[in-house]
Nucleic acid binder design. Structure first.
Length: 311
DNA sequence: AACTACTACAACCGCGCTGCG
DNA sequence: ACGCAGCGCGGTTGTAGTAGT
């Protein structure tokens, strides 16, 4: 016997949230903190189920969420992390503090999956190594990395960094807000929403997202995803997807490229994680001798893709 | 201008895990 | 030990917006 749906009650509203509902939810969370979602609908008067409230908060209203198109660096991180972790969107999201798992998942499904597929199907992929071989090798590398993760997680390692990287140390830490500044970001979110609600035009959105990109990416030179994506040069696509030198350089670029606002929010909201966001920490950890037997092999994981594609 | 097809993304659904009585 | 409730996560769906004809 399955659990009954949480939202099958009469009079429970579904569908898009209105700004009024958002405001009610935000002001409630501001006052009481996130959590105990069960009581939220009754205490706020919202005709929504608790789950819907939690989801709305987590994916949309929570402070520190960056919206708009993904930067190249974010794309690269997602691609690498997806290859490494699989569809563990929450885990992947923990490395992209300003993005929600839902956002990343959607972006993967709508953009990156297609992009990767396109590239894998391209003739270049068959040049030095057949697609099947490449996939097999990739799978092997992924399995090795996964195995290393599993082994490491089962080890008793007091100094291990990774446990600090679990999602619960990320956005879930909002459940106990520290008052004030954190919620200023919430207010920003609401203001943004209301703005969009009142005069939402494609041009405005485009302008917003492009201006956002300007502030978030120093090096992207108008090479954003969009209708243009279809005509993107193949070599450019390869470079875009796999042409980064290493996790660390990519990561440092990423941390530098975040806007002042974003870094402020990040500092406020993710105190446990620190300034430099730790993809390199994962890499270091994975490559840490003693944890991974085939250290060279794993290092190759980052570069073999390039090698195979470009040789 | 009207219709259709496609895309992007917000929201929902169902399952599994965890903590508590 | 067991059952229940709450929550988190991943997969899927619904719908608004956009492009193409």
């Amino acid at each position: 016997m399955g659990r009954p749906p949480c939202c099958d009650k009469e009079g429970v509203k579904k569908g898009p949230w209105t700004p009024e509902e958002d405001i009610m939810l935000v002001s409630y969370v501001q006052e009481h903190g996130a959590g105990n979602w069960r009581t939220v609908p009754s205490n706020t008067g919202l005709r929504r189920c608790s789950k819907s409230c939690r989801l709305r908060w987590t994916n949309y209203l929570r402070p520190g969420i960056k919206r708009g198109s993904f930067t190249e660096d974010e794309e690269k991180m997602i691609i690498q992390l997806q290859a490494l972790l699989g569809n563990k969107w929450a885990a992947i999201a923990s490395y992209l503090p300003e993005r929600t798992d839902n956002d990343i998942k959607n972006y993967w499904n709508t953009h990156l999956r297609k992009k990767l597929k396109k590239i894998q199907e391209s003739p270049l992929c068959h040049h030095s190594i057949s697609r099947g071989q490449w996939e097999k090798k990739l799978q092997t590398d992924i399995n090795k990395a996964k195995q290393a993760l599993n082994e490491a997680l089962s080890l008793d390692k007091p100094n291990l960094i990774l446990p600090e990287l679990k999602p619960s140390n990320g956005y879930l830490s909002y459940s106990k807000p520290t008052q004030g500044s954190v919620y200023a970001s919430s207010t920003e979110n609401i203001a943004r929403l209301l703005k969009g609600w009142v005069k939402k035009t494609p041009k405005l959105e485009q302008a917003n997202s492009s201006s956002m990109n300007e502030t978030t990416t120093a090096s992207s030179e108008g090479d954003q995803t969009g209708p243009k994506e279809e005509s993107v040069d193949l070599s450019e696509a390869y470079e875009s997807l796999f042409g980064f030198e290493s996790f660390e350089s990519s990561n440092s670029e990423f941390s530098q490229s975040t806007s002042p606002d974003a870094s402020l929010v990040q500092d406020e909201s993710k105190p446990d994680v620190g300034d430099h966001f730790p993809l390199s920490m994962l890499e270091n950890w994975l490559l840490d001798e003693g944890l991974v037997q085939g250290k060279e092999e794993l290092t190759d994981f980052s570069f073999d893709i390039n090698a195979d594609l470009f040789v």
